[in-house]
Design a binder for these strands. Structure first.
Lengths: 195, 195, 195, 195
DNA sequence: AATGAATGAGTTTTCATTCAT
DNA sequence: GATGAATGAAAACTCATTCAT
């Protein structure tokens, strides 16, 4: 029962299905058929819209990247001080929507993909740079450039590390706890005088 | 020309080949044939030795895990103070052999694997717990139990995060720099009085 | 924006597109989608007009056949002697419109098609017989029936052979040269006394 | 029941099966599965040995080309005069093994293939040049260079044309008749004084 | 012990064709 | 009349795995 104007809806449905499929089956075992089935369409349609498995996966990654960017921006828009901006970046990264198991699985899978696929690597580098740049920006008002860079790198690594550990955790730190942990580490680091 | 006593050598060669293959082709694209070719044996032999692809991959993971454990133990054996023990755990985790791109790729791939494969998950949890336990042990002599736990979690996350970021870096933090970064964060955290 | 009276134009455009598509992609790789795209319509429409891929291809063949017939008839209409009629048949077969690479490719493809498809075979036999009959007719006034038949067969084969070779040629005989070659061969054959 | 040393046998069987399959189904409809089934092996094995459909088809073409070359060489080896050499080239091209319907179909299909596939084109050009060169060589002892070239081109075209017509014929010229027809045309052409 | 031979099961991919609008 | 949407069916291709030697 084809209706017109379905394309964007199907694309979105396929991307959402891809995230879940990656979580459930593992990147190595996702098939177009599986993804399409979850999205309620035929594998042929998924091909038609995305051109192939790899491109569907990259589109999924771009979607995740954009969503994360939006989430951080939304938090930043509400911030009124350097402290609040730091907090906003951190909380954006740990927002409910990002910290879901399926999404974490997908991010991890893309990190793996990026080891071999140049386009995935390029996309992931954008995320990496943006995170560091956001942190650096907020820290610049609080300390020296040299220390700001060190702290930003530490904070970015910590965020990634908490994500990756979360993927294994039965319970582990919830989003709230993770954000607090990062903020505390930043504050501790900023107290250091000699840096 | 089969010779006696070849089995352990073949197994080792296959595991090393698996690590490289995962790095070069990506976990999703490694094949028994590819691994066997790199190891200079037939796919049938790889199968014969390990019983199947999944088991070869798990054996590779166990190998990595054991190697990391040995490396940390070797560092710890040389340590004579709490501070040195902390440093030993960190440096063990960033040792030259562990911080090679191919090895990082493989670890990442196993994190992904662990999302769906219970045995991989079990093995990875062993690593996680061992790391935290090692850190906790060293920190117990320097601070309160509550703070030691918080700092250990932070340090463990930081180590994982630096690994994952390293996998994308063109240059990124070298092993030395990564270790320093973690030690500094631990020291900063320990200075905090209220915790 | 559908307008009335478009059907014949669409049909023609699709047939022309089919010829080009066969040339560019090869008969084995032509798709309805490709042909329709070249003709600027949807695949569904192509289907609607012709009833299916096979029928579009057969229509294309009929078009080529008709065009060749017309061209030979046009030349014949101007001929006033047996010699001129022979020349007319040959020149009709090598007329500019027929000797284009895309058209040659299409003819070749239909020869292949005819090996398995009875309708294509039937159509191609019509061409074959018409060519031989045209030649025979012109030759009957110049020699014995037996020799006329032999020469006609030789000439027809030569025409087909020059076509097929032309399809591979970087330069090869142009239409003019090809026609001269055939005429000369016919004249040489007619000089033979004993036949 | 795998035995060693099967590879060459399988390759040959697959090539023979490919020729028959092309004849029966038409190049556009041959499938690896069909060819493999005729050869009595799995489609996977055909892939394993040839790497893909295109390459199996090219291998088939190379086989046909080599066979034709051998056949002409065998005839040439027995020839002791220019006249006999000409006859040898012609008879080699129409030898029983070459003039079988399935083989003719395959050749035709490769002509079509050559319109789009550079490798097929290259291979076919080799055949084309070899035929012309063989004819030219034999003719050089009988007439001027200029006339030898013209006659060689005519003869080569005639050979190709007789093949292509044969592919449609219910009866048509048998190998013997085709060879005679070409020889006669050559002799007629050589009688011409002014060339 | 080791391997070439062989395949079945499964995946991606392609495409003619159908249908609601 | 014309098309975007959608798919079933079939094809190429991949690969872990088995087996005779």
């Amino acid at each position: 029962m084809p209706r017109i104007g379905m394309e964007p809806l199907r694309r979105k449905a396929l991307i959402v299905a891809a995230i879940d499929a990656i979580h459930d089956r593992g990147m190595g075992h996702v098939t177009m058929g599986e993804i399409a089935r979850r999205a309620g369409v035929s594998a042929a349609l998924a091909h038609h819209y995305f051109g192939g498995k790899d491109q569907l996966l990259l589109a999924t990654m771009r979607h995740l990247l954009a969503e994360l960017g939006d989430e951080v921006q939304a938090e930043l828009a509400k911030a009124n001080s350097p402290q609040e901006r730091i907090s906003a970046v951190i909380r954006g990264n740990f927002s409910a929507c990002q910290f879901r198991p399926a999404v974490i699985s997908a991010w991890l899978a893309f990190y793996v993909q990026a080891q071999t696929d140049p386009e995935a690597r390029r996309l992931l580098r954008i995320y990496t740079r943006r995170l560091e740049s956001n942190l650096l920006h907020a820290l610049r008002d609080l300390t020296s450039r040299a220390q700001a860079e060190r702290v930003a790198e530490m904070a970015a690594s910590l965020i990634d590390g908490l994500w990756i550990r979360r993927s294994l955790a039965e319970s582990g730190p919830d989003a709230e706890g993770a954000a607090d942990l990062v903020e505390r580490a930043i504050n501790d680091a900023l107290k250091r005088k000699d840096a």
